[in-house]
Design a protein around this nucleic acid. Structure first.
Length: 956
RNA sequence: GCCGAAGUGGCGGAAUUGGUAGACGCGCUGGAUUCAAAAUCCAGUUCUUUCGAGAGUGUGGGUUCGAUUCCCACCUUCGGUACCA
């Protein structure tokens, strides 16, 4: 019989903490503040999986440590509760997203509670709560009502811009914009209200423009990238194309420069900073206009290499560029249309991943403004519509992709740079002497860039320009389960932002989640909501998932405030997040948007800091095995057909003909093994999960399963439809989630927490494996056996502990504190194991050792330590007591054991007093009997002695 | 394709201002205890070996007295790639 019942103490202390509000945080305190934040979860239907707690446990340990070190620690949790999966679930199962979300939140809350986190739950936020999204909508209206002044690098009210237009037109304004034409003050004043509104739209930080969405004609809906696999919809396997739609965007590019520069001041990993830096993708170059022969149209290109313009022998437009239709000649129309159709059927990822150059000549020619030569205009998928101007001047002599393209299509290549002085340089290096380049001949490339820019400006056809790869954020979703836009259109179609008093604009109730006409949001079907009593029309798109998560960390500071998103007093106390822990998969989306919103709020004086997250640690992912079934892209007699992986291999079916459809791992037999498969029952489950496949055919070696019947091929009686297994992230969309509940029930919370930490470094990804948890369980038993005997007897005495025990304790305190600060929780657990093993050997039961040890363990194992602390005579919770302090006296070592090496290989060891001199060590090492044979017939030519490290002899 | 990360025993991993490769744990092997098992405890466990030693941290090179650690090239896996969050 075990002396400690883990399930009992888990419950006992959970209740205690709850009743005593152990983790409630005060907003005003004499203690220094410390804000530890976790990325909040999306409450999916499959529950919290073993990957979520990895970061949460680590940050909880850190929070508990900081609390014990005397800080006022804000450590909150909430739910990112709007999103696609709940809506998909509603479509499939008819459960309202609000209901399924409420159920999932409740379940998550229970699961999080069972993990023993020290969250202050009175601060919980839920992004789908109108009290919360009121403020998400409000921030949106603020963005809508502002533009970005590029001169002062700051947001300003849009009315100020309108005043400027009335005074002096738009030519002299310094504002981030997507406005193409210039106008004078007179022109502005003579414009209609609608025209003025349309122009202002091109300056707002939240604005509308045409964008492309994944359109699935068969389903009549817009699809997320996640819902598409290899160009087909996951649901039903239908083709998907790119379709133009009017969308809301956020002008995040306005903040590009600040977001880039301010990376220097924050303690994020270099890897993460590099990702963001590259994502922002700043490049200097020039925008240049090319005249189109026989047309009024001009094509603006952006190039980082204006120096090479004499080598620009053709142009390439993005296939979706606005001018393609206008500039395509009738004889090329058919081919061009076909190519555009081909491009629209591919996702951007697929297009960028395309190694082969593809493209079409559109029949028109442009004039190279420097050579005055006619150059053909092509379209090609390697040019993206939203990067730069969506058009390039192609210089096949100095750009690899242009070069490959020119070679493939037989376009001329003119060398314009002599790189003979730089044999190491490749095509993309901006070095060499200009040749065949008119007035630039003989210049160095770097000087030529400046000269070309100057010339371009003189000719009035462009200017030097900074370009960013980052694009403005598409903020529209033709969906139901998200924040409604706080926007109404009047009878002229002019958009008007709601005022704060009108917020929140609540999401109307509906039971019909089917898309509206022409792929519009389901909200467009709710006519009495869409059309307001005042004769206005509401925006029917909703905001994306990233909206709510872009500012939630601020709401935790003041979660119940009804008058402001956060009060100035509270945001001035808590300021910013000191430590943010979350997955690196959020490196660009969430972390970019949050920084952008924060900077905007900073500009408005609403927050006191320029950056939201001072320090950030990326936890790695706990991976799972993803199981797929193969779906033939070609239907058989109108039925979708799945095929066994083994059979597909035998029949030599190429992967091009197959789509991989992920399947819920619960249905898979021998999950995770190489021979994982589906049997008939699994197939029925799969069909229940995806009703759109109810008429599908499933074929394996033993026979065919169709509409509930199995037709054997030979004497087979059972389907073994082998599945395809891959290691990948554990996620609801990959259907491979493993829940922690059972493990906690079996081993207790402390054990689960420590095991997750013991798995490996926090920032590294690793596959989940429950084997090995026994080791941690044994350790915890051993640990408590220092305090409580086999029959429950209390073993702690007040005698003086041996010196050795003090040394073990203090070395451990030193190591643990160092590891917590470095977020190296796995090595901290190892150190605990070593410490307990050593104390056990010495049979240590002294209070003066075991009381500090208990406190040292408290952040890691909050339940058992509170329990033992109580038996130790402690009042209240151990988690409000102080963290132990190292006594340096006990750390002194008398001697050091040196490895004695010959040519870097260890050949012997030698124990020497800690204060031995280099010479003493060298002499002692040389005279070791064990070393004799290594020196025989050899000469010692060099001796390296590094005190407290090693000795090395170099012999010849 | 592009950006980022990782690759060390059968497995998770440890060790980096360049200094004993494999800490700690799982698994496995042997032993103790037991009528037997579970549990517990003890010992062993990178590979090869002629038992002297030799090889070894994804692959191939380089720098160094000494490289898992630094440099160059490559391979593989994972994350992101703008509508999963």
């Amino acid at each position: 019989m075990s002396a400690i019942n883990y399930n009992e103490i888990d419950k006992k202390w959970k209740d205690f903490w709850d009743k005593n509000q152990t983790y409630k945080v005060e907003d005003i305190s004499d203690k220094p503040k410390y804000y530890v934040l976790d990325m909040f979860p999306y409450p999916s239907g499959s529950g919290l999986h073993v990957g979520h707690p990895l970061g949460y446990i680590a940050s909880d340990i850190f929070s508990r440590y900081k609390r014990m070190k005397g800080f006022n620690v804000l450590h909150p949790m909430g739910f990112d509760a709007f999103g696609l999966p709940a809506e998909e679930y509603a479509i499939q199962k008819g459960v309202h997203p609000a209901d399924s979300t409420a159920i999932n939140v409740k379940r998550y809350r229970e699961q999080l509670d069972s993990l023993g986190f020290s969250f202050d739950w009175t601060r919980q936020v839920n992004t789908s709560d109108p009290k919360y999204y009121k403020w998400t909508q409000w921030i949106f209206t603020e963005l809508y009502n502002h533009y970005f002044d590029t001169q002062i690098q700051k947001a300003r009210p849009i009315e100020e811009l309108a005043q400027q237009f009335a005074l002096s037109g738009n030519e002299s304004v310094t504002a981030a914009n997507s406005q193409e034409e210039n106008f004078s003050a007179d022109q502005w004043r003579s414009m209609s209200e609608v025209e003025q509104s349309e122009i202002l739209m091109n300056y707002r930080l939240a604005y509308r423009k045409t964008g492309y969405v994944n359109w699935c004609e068969a389903l009549g809906t817009v699809l997320a990238n996640d819902q598409i696999k290899e160009g087909l919809s996951v649901r039903g396997g239908h083709p998907v194309t790119q379709k133009a739609m009017n969308q809301w965007y956020l002008r995040i590019t306005a903040y590009a420069e600040r977001m880039l520069n301010d990376l220097d001041g924050i303690a994020w990993s270099d890897a993460l900073k590099t990702i963001q830096k590259n994502w922002i993708g700043r490049s200097e170059g020039a925008s240049i206009e090319f005249v189109v022969e026989g047309s009024e149209e001009k094509i603006e290109v952006f190039t980082t290499r204006p120096d090479t313009i004499f080598g620009a022998t053709y142009m390439v437009l993005a296939p979706l560029h606005e001018l393609v239709e206008k500039l395509t000649t009738s004889d090329q129309k058919e081919e061009v249309d076909e190519y555009v159709k081909y491009v629209k059927a591919k996702s951007e990822i697929q297009r960028m991943a395309e190694k082969e150059s593809t493209g079409k000549f559109i029949g028109s020619y442009a004039i190279n403004p420097f050579t005055n030569e006619k150059i053909p205009i092509w379209i090609g998928e390697y040019v993206l519509k939203d990067y730069g101007t969506g058009a390039i001047m192609a210089v096949p002599s100095d750009d690899e992709r242009d070069n490959a393209f020119a070679k493939k299509f037989g376009l001329p290549i003119i060398q314009v740079i002599d790189k003979s002085e730089y044999p190491e340089a490749d095509m993309s290096d901006k070095v060499g002497k200009m040749i065949n380049s008119g007035f630039m001949n003989g210049m160095e490339a770097k000087d030529a860039i400046k000269a070309a820019c100057k010339k371009v400006e003189e000719l009035g056809i462009g200017q030097a320009r900074v370009n960013y790869k980052m694009r403005d954020a598409n903020f529209s979703r033709q969906r139901y389960w998200g924040e409604p836009f706080p926007i109404e259109y009047n009878s002229n179609g002019i958009p008007l932002a709601l005022s704060l008093e009108e917020l929140p604009l609540e999401l109307p109730h509906t039971e019909d989640f089917k898309p509206g006409a022409a792929g519009k949001s389901p909200l467009a079907r709710i006519e009495n909501w869409m059309n307001t009593p005042e004769g206005k029309t509401r925006e029917t798109d909703v905001m994306p998932g990233v909206a709510g998560s872009s500012w939630y960390y601020l709401r935790y500071m003041d979660p119940h405030n009804e008058d402001a998103f956060v009060s100035p007093e509270k945001v001035n106390y808590w300021r910013d997040v000191d430590l943010y822990v979350g997955g690196s998969e959020h490196a660009v989306a969430h972390l970019m948007y949050a920084r952008f919103w924060h900077k905007f709020l900073f500009d408005k004086g609403r927050v006191p800091t320029n950056e939201p997250f001072k320090k950030l640690i990326n936890q790695g992912m706990i991976q799972g095995v993803i199981e797929f079934v193969y779906l033939l892209k070609e239907k058989e007699n109108g039925h979708s057909k799945f095929i066994c992986t083994k059979l597909a291999k035998e029949m030599n079916i190429s992967m091009d003909e197959l789509a991989k459809i992920p399947i819920l791992i619960d249905y898979v037999k021998d999950y995770g093994s190489e021979k994982s498969y589906l049997n008939m029952e699994s197939i029925k489950n799969f069909i229940n999960y995806y009703p759109s496949y109810k008429d599908a055919i499933f074929e394996c070696g033993a026979g065919t399963f169709h509409q509930g019947n199995f037709t054997p091929k030979g004497d087979g009686t059972e389907t073994h439809l082998f599945t395809h297994s891959e290691v990948g992230k554990m996620s609801k969309s990959k259907l491979n989630v493993i829940n922690p509940d059972d493990i906690i029930g079996q081993y207790g919370t402390d054990c689960f927490r420590m095991y997750e930490m013991f798995l490996g470094p926090i920032e590294q990804s690793k596959p989940w494996d429950t084997n090995g948890i026994e080791g941690v369980s044994k350790f915890l038993k051993k640990f408590s056996s220092l305090y409580v005997g086999e029959n429950g007897e209390w073993l702690i005495n007040d005698e003086t502990a041996p010196k050795e025990a003090h040394k073990i304790l203090n070395k451990t305190i030193q190591k643990i504190e160092k590891d917590i600060l470095a977020f190296s929780m796995n090595t901290a657990i190892s150190a605990f194991m070593i410490c307990v093993n050593d104390l056990k050997k010495l049979k240590v039961h002294n209070r003066e050792i075991l009381q500090p040890l208990l406190h040292l363990m408290a952040p890691f194992a909050p339940f058992i330590t509170d329990e033992l602390n109580e038996r130790m005579g402690g009042k209240g919770s151990i988690h409000h007591e102080a963290f132990p302090v190292v006594n340096e006296e006990h750390l002194k070592e008398d001697s050091f054991t040196y490895p004695i090496c010959v040519m870097g290989k260890k050949r012997a060891t030698l124990e020497m007093p800690s204060d031995a001199s280099k010479e003493e060590i060298e002499t002692a090492a040389k005279n070791l009997p064990a070393m004799e044979k290594w020196f025989e017939d050899k000469e010692i030519i060099k001796t390296i002695v590094v005190p407290q490290k090693m000795v090395n002899f170099v012999v010849k």
